[in-house]
């Protein structure tokens, strides 16, 4: 009896400890970005394109990278959604009785989740050369979408998996087809979770540097079409950090702050939005 109690206390403290390590680490990263980035951040930086070459002179801003990153990740997330959502629904509704096949698909998706994004970048680059395309916004979108599709499908899959079979049976017994069950019942039941899956993928898309390194190119201009190259925030941070000039280095933290704030704004607004649609969810 005494031992049980000690055991309880031990594991409780272990959990508290590990939770605090994670939270503290996160706070440390965010506060160092704010601490180093905020002084370098200015309206000029947000509203202007860079002046002064590749390594980002001290003048001008990162507007091209902000807009480029938004274009790129919104486009890539949209492409991934077009493919990812149907696949996730297919796995959980149409293949319901073929558990073995679904598990094999899951296995391969998890494998491709583990492939580093630079490999997707290299693959995209090879494809571009093969088709004779130059580095562009479109090439970047396609490459990034390839990279986030497995992430999105598995995140959605985990959500759809939680729908109890009884709800599916209820839908079928009312005479719905599989597609009706998918789009009228599963989507409603899982709406919040699916939005979270999309967000997760968006976060990966906007934060990744390696897959866009070869595929989107780099430019000081804001892209006007899908065929033009574009700058992105992760690459801007990469270039600024590697600059020998201290002022430019400080700007890397400002860029990182901008990236963090964008992700924060999108997460919060999507959560608020999805909360409105959550009220019909059946809790089991």
């Amino acid at each position: 009896m005494k031992f049980k109690k000690t055991e309880e206390t031990f594991f409780r403290w272990l959990m508290i400890l590990s939770t605090s390590v994670i939270v503290a680490g996160l706070l440390l990263i965010i506060s160092s970005i704010i601490y180093k980035g905020l002084p370098a951040l200015s309206w000029e930086m947000l509203s202007q394109t860079p002046k002064g070459g590749f390594y980002f002179g001290k003048e001008g801003g990162i507007l091209n990278a902000i807009i480029g990153s938004l274009y790129l990740s919104v486009g890539a997330t949209f492409l991934a959604l077009l493919i990812g959502l149907p696949v996730a629904l297919y796995m959980n509704i149409f293949l319901k009785k073929h558990n073995r096949i679904v598990n094999i698909i899951r296995f391969f998706l998890d494998l491709s989740w583990g492939i580093p994004s630079i490999v997707y970048g290299a693959f995209g680059f090879t494809m571009m050369i093969y088709f004779g395309l130059q580095s562009s916004l479109l090439a970047g979108m396609i490459t990034v979408s390839l990279f986030i599709i497995p992430i999105m499908i598995r995140a959605m899959d985990e959500v759809l998996k939680t729908v109890p079979i009884g709800l599916m049976e209820a839908s079928f017994s009312l005479g719905s087809t599989k597609s009706e069950t998918a789009f009228k019942v599963f989507l409603k039941q899982c709406f919040t979770g699916l939005v979270t899956a999309i967000l997760l993928s968006f976060g990966r898309a906007i934060g990744d540097a390696a897959s866009v390194l070869f595929t989107t190119g780099y430019t000081d201009n804001i892209p006007q079409s899908l065929g033009e190259p574009t700058a992105t925030l992760p690459l801007a941070i990469f270039f600024q950090l590697s600059s020998p000039i201290p002022e430019v280095k400080a700007r890397a933290y400002a860029s990182a702050l901008v990236l963090t704030v964008i992700i924060l704004i999108i997460s919060i607004s999507a959560r608020l939005l999805s909360k409105r649609y959550n009220k019909h969810k059946i809790k089991f």
Partner: peptide, 21 residues
């Protein structure tokens, strides 16, 4: 099979309302 299922209403062991009003 969809038409066939419409011929039958099912009440399950515990109720599963659809996620809507």
């Amino acid at each position: 099979i969809t038409m066939l299922r419409k011929k039958m209403g099912l009440l399950s062991q515990r109720p599963y309302p659809l996620p809507m009003s």
